[in-house]
Every structure is written in structure tokens, then in C-alpha cells.
Nucleic acid binder design. Structure first.
Length: 804
RNA sequence: GGCGGUGUGGCGGAAUUGGCAGACGCGUCAGACUCAAAAUCUGGUGUCCCUUGGGACGUAUCGGUUCGACCCCGAUCACCGCUACCA
């Protein structure tokens, strides 16, 4: 009987001892880079969701090796992050050693699954030899003006006495404790991802990614084309710009609204309105994000007392402020056309502001009309439809120097600071004379100081601020300075790790250019859809920056992307709190890694979220055991030689074997593992019923199944008498001539309903097919007392007789 | 509210270009082996009607296009994901 506990250990040891999966560098072979999203090594260890994606990439990696590629298939650790820090704060331990312990656990569990990683290339983001280059990339960005400081709100939680990261804010409250979060301005590091917005958008088109993921990125970038219109403030020298996608409705503007944070607010507010405006500003400041957005769709606002002049008709219109206008988008000011914008309409209704129709259509008594129509009350735009009117208005604005065509993005610059300990220190020094300098490149890495004192500073500053020995520096001229105490977000290290795998031990460069050229872009990248936007957008951004610097040779990092689905339990996400987590260790212990791998691939399409079936691994174990019994004699652990597996081919299995080779190969390539496995089951069912199985087919089958169930297939391969690992045994090929049918079944329908069938020679003429169809006894019965009106004949497939 | 996705037996799912709906597996029923059980092997298994042959219905719902629709089009419902006043 096959003993997975013994055999799996045996081959894992063999692979390690023989460096079977060391990345190939044969110049005569093509290169293939297949990558997993590296995990955050949490204290909980692996759950059954991890091996799903990892098995998929492992199957591809193993198939590609067998097909004669050099394969780069690495694994590493996204090792900085909040849970380790939180654990450290709670226990007084060092997050570094805690993280290392977790990595050990993860690595042990991953190794039990028999994945073909090249472990010599393991990286972890919290290793100074690694984050040296994360810091180096930051410095290049700083030099290019892509990293800058700005006064930006942080998520300040007075109840916790700390700031929280965006990812710790759920629905405007802290993830832990559910305390309100307030936006509090602080000097922070930003990365100018907006400078790359257009390229990030455009280059999506050439990527082989799931269309919905590309669409999510497009939405996130949020390009919108419109116009910038300059309004003068009546009685002031001041003016301000608004961004609008509907310049055609400018004649319908009945007021303008500034964001409460807009710099003009204090300058233009009249003395009569000052009290009201100040009160409103005070109210806004104390509002949490939640109150400002989600819960409160009710518009609020206040009149400044000032008026703007509509450049197109010199009309004086009131200037209001309201928090429905976002300071961070466009110019932080909008022209309000309540007749043709839902938000403006709601605001105008509430504050009784005029609603002027300039496009015909809809019913303004009920709602704004945002559709197309003919312009009215719009001077030179009258009679035009929306698109034409937009063009004409932009021309007019440009001609009269009071506006221009403008493209805006929803994408904001990347808030790159975290007020945290456990992250890459930002390699910057702030000097007493106000100068800000980078830590010189030859002094990198700037190491994170080892300390157990990482309690929150009690202010919106990083815990590093408390470590005065580390923070305070003096240069050779005696000038005093302080180190930047913010650290980088978890996204930093994960934005370029796929580059480091290519040349993980290089201490001169983040990676050698020629090696990058050999391996990039990543041929296949698999991971969870939760990273559809942020991680994948950030990594693309960094990659493009490095491309511009001449560090990497490609515009894009990941050519083909695929998202695995979730594994559910009772139609819910697995989670510790629900107590429905399936532990892969238990499954491996009972059924073996091969069975777990096979089940996770067989349970359904890779990208679907599917319920875990308690019986699943048992069912695939049953299949694997049948394979074993078919090929191996349990008594002497020799191949089953006697009657079953033989040198001779009686051709009984020719067709199904060739079909299987073809389907498994194309299905693997398309990541359709469930149907590939089902085809292998079909082959085994047939082989079991056959009198004999040719040895060549048995061996070919083992090669097909080896990527899914590598341990058992190695064992059978050895029993078949091979000395070398099956990993590099050439991938099977099929004989297309064996798949050509000489006889094909022809279905016969009467009025679209199946009434009979017969067998015909392939490519039989339409006339003959029709004649045979009409002669079918069952068919004839249904044609009684009916007149044949038409006969549709599709050669090799179907005959449909239309009769009344 | 906006964008996107998904709905097929008791369950997970399959179905090339619009051409035999339900491959493969789970579960289940029956048989073989066994003193017995497990394991294994063989066969049945969408629903309803029916005497065999077979017939009617059937891919969320309603409608359309077509000789023919799980597949294309329109509307509706349900669930999931992302997003959230982006002017």
C-alpha cells in the first residue's frame, strides 16, 4: 500500500539534496518566470487557501521544466507589517525574532507540500540586505522629485493614542476597538504616482490580465477629461479654477462651491458671514471620515458672502463652501449646475439656490437631467448637443484665456509614511538649518534600530521618535539633525521583490541588468484578487520608475496575471473567529500532500470561490491510489508487469491516451486544472478496464500527473526503473492522427427536438446525411402527417428537420 | 448609488464557433468479494410519466432573435467583489 508519509518525505529530501529545482541557466533553453504573491508570515500559519495558488504555479513550473525551459520559481516573505508590531507591543518581544519564527513555520508547511521552489533565492523584506535596495529605490525617487513631503492628514485615533494605517481603518473606525478616527494634518512622505497615471492606464492595454482587474485599475486611476475654468472673485483680485467634465453647462452655473479647506476661503469670506463660516469649519474639523462620507449623504454648507463672476456671461454667482467638494480632487472647487448634476441639484434644493436648465430633457421638478439633449439659454451653444457643445465651449474658454481642456485623475499621490516601528526606515535626515538630505547611498542600509521600546509615542509620531540615540545625528561640521522617524508602508518591500529573486545575492545592485533582461517580465503571476489594485498598481509604478532610470529593461513587471479564488467553508470566508479554518497540516497528515494538491486543483476553476468539501482530499487520494495500484505491485513494490503494464501496444488505449496528453497540456496552459485532472481520471478509468496498458502510455501518464502529484509520480517513475527524477523527463507529446475520427455520430432533430441519431463517415455529404436522417425509424414516426418544410444539415454534427 | 462578476442535478462542477445539457468527482442506491465490516471492484442515479421501446419537462425568472439558445439580445430577481459625493 502506498504510504504518503514515507514517500513524500523521501522525495522532499531527494529534491533538496540534489538541488533538483535550482534555477536553470542553460543558454540554449528559453526562460520562464512563474511567480506567487509572497505571503505575509502571520502567526497563524498556512491555511488551505495558500496552497491553491502555490499549487497552480507549481504545476506550471514543473510542466515548463519538463518542456525544456529554464524555470525561475522562487518564494519569499513579505515580512514587515502591523501584526508583528502589535504582537511585539503586547508582549515586549522583538518583532524581528517573532517574524523569523513565523517564517520558519510557514517554510516548514510550504515544504511539506512539495513545491518546486528554488530556495537559494528566498528573500525577506525585513532583511537589511534586502531593504537596503528598498531604501535605494526611495532615494532615486527622491532625487527625481517623485518622493516629497507634504502636509497630509493622518488617521489619528485619540482613544488608541496612536495613528492608524489606512488598512486599519474599516468604515471610518479603527479595526481594533472600533474607535473613531480623525483626520489630522501631519508632515508626511508622498510618492508622486500621479506623474505616471497616464502610463499606468495606457500600458494596461497590452497586459494579459483578467479584464475585470484591468477595469478596477482603470477605475482607480479614474481618468476624466473636461475643462478647467477660471472664475474671478467679485471685488477681489483673487481668482480660482474649477474642474468640470461638463463645460457645456457653464451657462447653467448658478453658484460655485469651494472645499472647506480651500485656501481662498479665509480671504474672501465677508465679515457678515465669518461667524457662520468659522462655525462650519470647526464642525468639519471634528467630523470623522465616517461622518463626512458614508453615513451622511445629506448635504451641508454655508455661504461665504462672496461672489464669483461667470466668465462666459459675467453673471455674479454666490460662492459657497461645502464638504461635498473634496479638497484633494481637481482644484478643490466646483461650478454648480444644479439642473444637470445630481449632487448640485440636491445642494440647490436644500439651500434654495436657482436651478437653470441649459439642456433640454428630463423633469427638473424631480431631479437633475444628466443625459444628452439640445442646449438652450446658452448663447452660442444653443441648438448643439452635449458633445459638440463641450468642444465649442472649450474652444471659447481657450480663446478668451479663462479656461482650457484639462484631464484629471482620481488617483492620488501615494501616502508613503507610516507612524510605525516595524518597517523600512526612510533614509532621510532633517537638519537644524532646515535642510533635508538623504542618507548617502554608501551608508545604506539604514538599519532599523533593535529595541523593545516600540510603544506608540502617544503623539501622531512613530515610536522611533522615542529612540533619541538613533534619531539624533551630528554631521562632521557639528550641525545637528534628526532622522526621519516615519517608516515605509508594507507595500514598499512588495513593490519590487520579484526583481530581487532574479539576482538575490547581488551586493552591488538591486539586480544585474543582463539577468533582469533574461527573466523579465514575469511570465505568470498568481495571487489573490484582494491585491487587484494597490499592490499591483504600486509595483507597476515602481517598475516604471526603475525603467526610466534604466535599472529594469521592461515597461511592465507582470505580463500575465491570474487571480485565484477563495476557499470557503459553509459559504463563508474561513477565519479564526468563525472557527472554520481547515489546517493543511491535518489534511497532509491524513491524505498526503499530493492528495491535497490534487483536490485543490480539482475542486473547480482556479479563479472561483468554492466551498471546501470535507470529502475532497479523500476523493483525490482514492484516485491517486487507483493510479498506484494500476502501475505498482504492492507485494514487491515492482511495476505490475505480469499481465497489465506491458511493452506491447494493443492499441486499445491509443485514442484516450492521445486525447489525454492533448487535453492535459492545453488545460494546464490555460490554468484549467480541474478539467485536466478529470481527463486524467477518464484515462485511468479506461486503463483499468483495458486488458493491458502499454508501458509507454503508463510513463507518459505519470509525466502528466507529476506536476499535480509529484511525490507519488517520482516513486512510480523510480519503480519503472528510472534513475533520474521525473522532473526533467521530457513532456509527453501526442499523435494528432490518432485523434482523427473516421466515424462521427450525427444527431437528428425534428423541429429542434432530438429524435434519433446515426453514425456516418466523417465529412459525409449533406445529401447523404439528409437521406439517412429521413430514413431513421424514430425520426419517421415524428414526421407522420407532417409536411417537411426545410432540412438543415450541419456536416459531422446534426440534421434538423423542420416539419408542420 | 456607480462599476464588474456569478446563477446548471442532493453537492463541487463540465459542455470547442449557437448543434447529444449534466463529462469527471462527491453523495447515494444496488450487486460482487467477506463470517462480518472496512477497503476494493461492477452497475444505476436531473425531475415527472410510463409496460418494454419511449414520452413530457429541465441550465435563476420573464420575453426576444434563430431551423436550433446554458451560450447571443432586452428586462427582472438573487448572491458575491470592488468603489463610494472624484464635479
Amino acid at each position: 500500500m502506498y504510504n504518503h508519509k514515507v514517500v513524500e518525505k523521501k522525495w522532499q529530501r531527494y529534491w533538496a539534496a540534489h538541488q533538483t529545482f535550482k534555477t536553470g541557466n542553460d543558454p540554449h533553453k528559453k526562460n520562464y518566470y512563474v511567480l506567487d504573491m509572497f505571503p505575509y508570515p502571520s502567526g497563524k500559519g498556512l491555511h488551505v487557501g495558500h496552497p491553491e495558488g502555490y499549487t497552480a504555479t507549481d504545476i506550471i513550473a514543473r510542466m515548463k521544466r519538463a518542456q525544456g525551459y529554464n524555470v525561475l520559481h522562487p518564494m519569499g516573505w513579505d515580512a514587515f507589517g502591523l501584526p508583528a508590531e502589535q504582537y511585539a507591543i503586547n508582549t515586549g518581544h522583538d518583532p524581528a525574532s517573532f517574524t523569523d519564527k513565523n517564517i520558519e513555520t510557514f517554510k516548514h508547511q510550504i515544504k511539506m507540500l512539495g513545491f518546486s521552489y528554488d530556495w537559494d533565492r528566498e528573500v525577506k523584506t525585513c532583511d537589511p540586505d534586502y531593504y537596503k535596495w528598498t531604501q535605494w529605490i526611495f532615494e532615486q525617487m527622491y532625487k527625481k522629485g517623485l518622493a516629497y513631503e507634504a502636509e497630509v492628514p493622518v488617521n489619528w485615533s485619540p482613544d488608541l493614542g496612536t495613528v492608524v494605517a489606512n488598512e486599519e481603518v474599516i468604515d471610518g473606525k479603527t479595526e481594533r476597538g472600533g474607535f473613531p478616527v480623525y483626520r489630522r494634518p501631519m508632515r508626511q512622505w508622498m510618492l508622486k504616482i500621479t506623474a505616471y497615471a497616464d502610463r499606468l492606464l495606457k500600458d494596461l492595454d497590452d497586459l494579459d490580465w483578467p479584464e475585470p482587474i484591468k477595469e478596477m485599475q482603470r477605475n482607480w486611476i479614474g481618468r476624466s477629461v473636461g475643462a478647467e475654468v477660471t472664475f474671478k472673485v467679485a471685488g477681489h483680485h483673487e481668482s480660482f479654477d474649477v474642474f468640470t467634465t461638463r463645460p457645456d453647462t457653464l451657462f447653467g452655473a448658478s453658484y460655485v462651491v469651494l472645499a472647506p479647506e480651500h485656501e481662498l476661503v479665509s480671504k474672501i469670506t465677508t465679515s457678515q458671514q465669518k461667524e457662520a463660516v468659522d462655525a462650519y469649519l470647526a464642525k468639519i474639523a471634528s467630523k470623522s471620515d465616517l461622518e463626512r462620507t458614508d453615513l451622511n449623504k445629506d448635504k451641508t454648507g454655508v455661504f461665504t458672502g462672496a461672489y464669483a463672476i461667470n466668465p462666459v456671461n459675467d453673471e455674479k454667482i454666490p460662492i459657497w463652501i461645502s464638504d461635498y467638494v473634496l479638497a484633494s480632487y481637481g482644484s478643490g472647487a466646483v461650478m454648480a449646475v444644479p439642473a444637470h448634476d445630481d449632487r448640485d441639484y440636491a445642494f440647490a434644493q436644500k439651500f434654495d439656490l436657482p436651478i437653470k436648465a441649459v439642456v433640454e430633457g428630463g423633469n427638473l421638478a424631480e431631479s437633475a437631467y444628466t443625459g444628452d439633449g439640445v442646449h438652450v439659454n446658452s448663447s452660442f451653444l444653443n441648438g448643439l448637443n452635449v458633445e459638440a457643445a463641450k468642444v465649442k465651449m472649450v474652444d471659447w474658454l481657450e480663446e478668451h484665456h479663462c479656461g482650457k481642456k484639462k484631464v484629471n485623475y482620481k488617483l492620488r499621490d501615494w501616502l508613503f509614511s507610516r507612524q510605525r516601528y516595524w518597517g523600512e526606515p526612510i533614509p532621510v535626515i532633517h537638519w537644524e538649518d532646515g535642510e533635508t538630505t538623504l542618507v548617502p547611498e554608501d551608508e545604506l542600509p539604514l538599519r532599523l534600530p533593535v529595541t523593545t521600546n516600540i510603544k506608540p509615542s502617544g503623539t501622531p509620531e512613530s515610536p522611533l521618535a522615542n529612540l533619541t540615540d538613533w534619531v539624533n545625528v551630528v554631521d562632521k561640521n557639528g550641525r545637528k539633525g534628526k532622522r526621519e522617524t516615519n517608516t515605509m508602508p508594507q507595500w514598499a518591500g512588495s513593490s519590487w521583490y520579484y526583481l530581487r529573486y532574479i539576482d538575490p545575492h547581488n551586493d552591488q545592485k538591486l539586480a544585474d541588468y543582463d539577468l533582469l533582461k533574461k527573466w523579465l517580465p514575469v511570465d505568470l503571476y498568481i495571487g489573490g484578487a484582494e491585491h487587484a489594485v494597490l499592490h499591483l498598481l504600486y509595483a507597476r509604478f515602481w517598475h516604471k520608475v526603475l525603467y526610466d532610470l534604466g535599472v529594469v529593461p521592461t515597461k511592465e513587471p507582470f505580463q500575465k496575471l491570474y487571480n485565484q479564488g477563495l476557499i470557503l467553508k459553509d459559504h463563508e470566508k474561513m477565519s479564526k473567529s468563525k472557527g472554520n479554518v481547515v489546517n493543511p497540516d491535518d489534511v497532509i497528515d491524513e491524505y498526503g500532500a499530493d492528495s491535497l494538491r490534487a483536490y485543490e486543483m480539482f475542486m473547480g476553476p482556479l479563479d472561483a470561490s468554492i466551498d471546501w468539501d470535507e470529502n475532497g482530499p479523500a476523493s483525490t487520494k482514492k484516485f491517486l491510489d487507483r493510479v498506484w495500484r494500476l502501475f505498482v505491485n504492492d507485494l514487491d513494490l515492482k511495476p505490475v508487469p505480469s499481465a497489465k503494464v506491458v511493452k506491447e501496444n494493443d492499441h486499445e488505449l491509443d485514442k484516450v491516451y492521445n486525447q489525454t496528453v492533448k487535453k492535459v497540456t492545453t488545460d494546464f496552459d490555460a490554468l484549467h486544472f480541474n478539467t485536466a485532472i478529470s481527463q486524467m481520471m477518464v484515462f485511468i478509468n479506461a486503463a483499468q478496464k483495458a486488458k493491458t496498458v502499454p508501458l509507454a502510455y503508463a510513463e507518459g501518464f505519470c509525466k502528466l500527473l507529476a506536476p499535480v502529484a509529484p511525490h507519488m509520480m517520482e516513486e512510480i517513475w523510480q519503480i519503472f526503473g528510472h534513475q533520474e527524477s521525473i522532473s526533467y523527463a521530457p513532456w509527453p507529446t501526442y499523435d494528432p492522427s490518432q485523434l482523427v475520427e473516421k466515424q462521427v455520430p450525427i444527431m437528428v432533430q425534428v423541429n429542434g427536438k432530438l429524435r434519433g441519431h446515426f453514425t456516418a463517415a466523417k465529412d459525409e455529404t449533406k445529401e447523404n446525411l439528409q437521406k439517412q436522417a429521413l430514413a431513421e425509424p424514430h425520426v419517421v414516426k415524428f414526421l407522420n402527417e407532417k409536411t417537411i418544410q426545410k432540412v438543415i444539415v450541419i456536416p459531422n454534427k446534426i440534421v434538423n428537420i423542420v416539419a408542420k
